[in-house]
Write a protein that binds this DNA or RNA. Structure first.
Lengths: 207, 207, 207, 207
DNA sequence: TATGAATGAGCGTTCATTCAT
DNA sequence: TATGAATGAACGCTCATTCAT
């Protein structure tokens, strides 16, 4: 039943087991949100979930695996939330705008989750001390869709000439910046940030 | 020998003590850079510095104090590097450009240090679980100079109309984004990022 | 499993846990008896009990809790030993005599435990540096029953006139004195002390 | 300059050195009075005395030696205070009364010192875990003068028949009891205790 | 004599993990 | 499946002691 030795997805898992896993991840999110990555011990997570410590070991291949799943879960959820909204838009700028706005909206709807997300991906490391999700933030999955969007806009003439890869990064920085601010500031004014970010991005990329 | 109970500056410390403190902070930087905040124990730091664990306790008021000093040291160094470069520029846009470029240059010169900086300010918490440097990222010290610069540019007509506070945040996000990328990617092309960031900012703020 | 957060008594504890707790307390008694409060580390106690250090933390809420339980356990055992003997006597002097003799007998039966008891209540302090059991030695629980006994004897005319509260203290001093002597002298002649103490007290309080 | 390797008394010590030793002992008394034996580190004692830690090591053969001297100093001071008062009295009961009252008076004048005394003799142990001053409390020095006094009174017919050695212990218990109460209770009414103790002793020993 | 610096052992505690039941 | 119990290593920290200056 170890998640890392299974094929991806939910194959081989009963409905009950999936429920347990989600329950444990939820508890982990709550504990990390309140106490931070460092102080989030399995004991506290188990207590929050109302189960014994051993259950976590049973369902996950250790603490790292649990946190790995936690990150992946939110990552997938984010993708599933944004994809249809972006697809629904037509034209490069409307799509980019949808990308930004749906991202912001998702962050707003998962503030607590985001705070935990930021905390975990900044700390979860393998045995060599390398960040587990170092690649995820830099590589294709995150940046490429944005790069394609920008290139598309340049080809259609909607967008000005600029270094697309770098500009994709700036846009990501603005989104990650919001995630960070939201995790640090309880009552951060997301609406205002979102509106201004869309305008700033428009000035930055549109002709 | 407690750093927190001392008056600011280096008063009351001997030369040799200052050297030891720097040596210990350097060792801490190296260990955190390689293994991350979580795994950076005093034992490892002491071993790296070639001293015994007790020496750290002797020179610092505990682990938190050591990390606090580490952050402050880089923070001050950054300010001292950038201030004259910004002051030397005349006009809102040249000043903003100097702000960006000196910031980027400083980050480039302290890549390892920066990686550690990001790690520590994201993890160092006080007894209530609050991030020690949460304010530092959000408050006046960091954002206000930028806000003033933008307002100045709007008054002189150099800059377009936009939400200055939010725009200041976007600019910070780009800088913090670089810090993050530099900490994650060994051979990140800073030159290209820097050049593109200056151009993007220009499009974003200038008329 | 934290003893301080549990309701009084043994509710919520399994039989096996109670056995472990008793075993650990016994080991603590032995170590403190031999090496004294100061040198009695959890490591030594665990070694004596033949378990690992962590087990103590698992069953007690820290070292202070363990020692607290140790004291309370003997305190309660003493009360349970003496109470029926005192109740069985009729008349103020017979009751006082039973108080003394049952106290002496209990001390004699728990010489080692008493040595430890004296050591712990003289050293165990809370975070403010105040002795945990300072009150226990001075307050109602210990002195009041004795005061009542003496007042009763004065009302029935069995006892002479004297300062009852102070006299209660002198009687306690004699008992505590025995506890101290027993802890210091391996082969102290308790019988002789007990007999002489009863006689001396009779001369002191009876008409 | 190590005290244990020197002959007793002050031979071989300069006036300045004696002053330093007294100063250090005073500082130790203050620290132990406030924080208790356990938390009284040499660092705190040195800080209180306004000197560096090393000085203590220079003047005393380690912490144990310092505390040893501390106890002896008060012990001698007590003897010097009481002896002339007892000698001045004539007759067994007046002498015993002077013994009690001068003892009480001395305790009253050195409440803080006494608290420390009780703390130290209860904790200071040699390497085998034996109390350093175990004998002092039980042997000739403390008990014999009292025994002689009681025997004298019995021979002159002033005192009744009783077990003198045990009775000497009861009297010591009352004195030690006061020392303990004074150390535990800030505003303990010594006058009342003293008066009642003299009366109670009279009833206990006089015909 | 006195000091600041350093040591190294030991402290109480936390925690991910294992395992018999 | 789930649990309570136990482990053992690592943690930050304290402290008596040593020593070159």
């Amino acid at each position: 039943m170890r998640s890392e030795s299974e094929s991806p997805g939910q194959k081989g898992r009963t409905f009950i087991e999936e429920a347990r896993r989600r329950q444990i991840i939820e508890a982990a999110v709550e504990v990390i949100a309140e106490q931070g990555y460092l102080k989030a011990s399995l004991a506290k997570i188990a207590e929050r979930a109302g189960i014994s410590k051993g259950v976590i070991s049973y369902h996950f291949d250790g603490k790292d695996d649990l946190l790995h799943q936690l990150v992946i879960q939110l990552y997938i959820a984010g993708g599933e939330f944004m994809a249809p909204r972006i697809d629904a838009a037509e034209g490069a700028w409307p799509k980019l705008r949808a990308y930004l706005e749906s991202n912001f909206e998702f962050i707003g709807q998962h503030r607590t989750y985001l705070r935990v997300f930021v905390d975990v991906i900044g700390n979860l490391r393998d045995q060599d001390g390398m960040l587990h999700f170092r690649d995820m933030q830099e590589n294709a999955d995150v940046l490429d869709p944005l790069v394609e969007l920008l290139e598309e806009g340049q080809q259609t003439g909607e967008f000005a000439e600029f270094d697309v890869r770098m500009t994709a990064m700036f846009i990501r920085d603005t989104i990650d910046g919001l995630a960070g601010r939201v995790s640090r500031t309880e009552d951060f004014d997301m609406e205002r940030y979102s509106r201004a970010a869309v305008e700033a991005t428009a000035r930055m990329v549109c002709r």
